[in-house]
């Protein structure tokens, strides 16, 4: 009996590693190609049949890439946009989601529907009117159009957090209510701490969105001192050809710190999101 359990565990382990490795391989191949490409000359990049490794390792892509691409400035600008957006999105979305998930009032459903509906309007038709609105209040050319909207709830996260908040046992918040804690108090003192990891996930997603948003910075920023990483990367995409080597070199440098942060913090995003400690 014991043996069979051990045996099964072993098989399970080997099988899961095999599947994970197979998936990792699929996911990693393009990235491997990217990193290797950063060290290749154009001729090697375009060799047929495919040349995975080259003897002719070059550092030109890095020097070229870094010369075209003021990395520090662009990373800094991206952070100036991303960090307030992350905080604003997490706090405001959580606030709104609490009202939608935990307070039983008549507009709860209609408001949720309207918030969902905002995600369904294709951006390219609202782009020009939105630009006109931001121009009217004098925000074009600043970071504000890229930051401010996140302080009033982002539909995607409101929905995500609502799903989480629906899962928090009633008994937990009801007890506080009976004790006379106000709703804001419950949100702030009970739900927010409980959902800290879910908020971390929201912040992670928002960071990635600010990080790879192209159209927003493109439309609203005109001063090259304010450009972001993603906008800067289009430098390498010319009309007729792409400077693949330098683009890959810069991308490789950029992806490393984010990957490290994720590697170190993923436990918070994932394990920590659990609310299981309080499950009945």
């Amino acid at each position: 009996m014991l043996q069979s359990v051990l045996w099964r565990r072993l098989v399970e382990k080997i099988a899961s590693h095999a599947i994970l490795l197979a998936f990792s391989f699929c996911f990693f191949i393009p990235l491997l190609w990217m990193v290797l490409g950063a060290f290749k000359t154009p001729a090697d990049l375009n060799a047929t049949p495919v040349k995975w490794f080259t003897h002719d390792i070059t550092w030109d892509n890095f020097s070229q890439g870094v010369q075209t691409f003021p990395m520090g400035r662009y990373v800094l600008n991206t952070l100036i946009i991303a960090v307030p957006s992350m905080i604003g999105a997490a706090v405001s979305s959580s606030f709104i989601a609490y009202g939608l998930a935990r307070i039983d009032w008549p507009l709860r459903k209609p408001l949720f529907v309207v918030i969902l509906a905002t995600m369904m309007i294709p951006y390219y038709v609202t782009m020009v009117p939105l630009f006109q609105m931001f121009k009217a209040i004098g925000w074009v050319g600043t970071f504000l159009p890229l930051i401010a909207p996140h302080f009033f709830g982002v539909a995607f996260y409101v929905f995500l957090l609502r799903q989480f908040y629906m899962g928090i046992p009633r008994s937990l918040t009801d007890a506080a209510r009976v004790d006379g804690v106000s709703e804001i108090g419950i949100w702030w003192r009970i739900v927010l701490p409980l959902s800290r990891p879910a908020l971390a996930a929201v912040m992670l997603f928002q960071f990635l969105i600010s990080w790879s948003d192209l159209l927003g910075p493109l439309l609203y920023l005109s001063n090259s001192n304010l450009y972001t990483v993603s906008l800067g990367l289009t430098y390498f995409r010319g009309e007729y050809a792409t400077a693949f080597g330098p683009l890959m070199a810069v991308s490789a440098i950029l992806i490393v710190p984010v990957a490290v942060v994720f590697f170190l913090a993923q436990r918070t995003f994932i394990q920590g999101i659990t609310l299981s400690g309080i499950k009945e």
């Binding site: 075209t68 003021p70 520090g72 400035r73 990373v75 090259s224 440098i253």
Partner: peptide, 24 residues
């Protein structure tokens, strides 16, 4: 490596007119 990458990037910021003379 991450810190170094960031720092090396930041060095660019301090170059006078570094940004406006590079790029497109």
């Amino acid at each position: 490596a991450a810190a170094a990458a960031f720092l090396s990037g930041c060095a660019v910021v301090s170059v006078p007119n570094g940004v406006s003379t590079v790029g497109l």
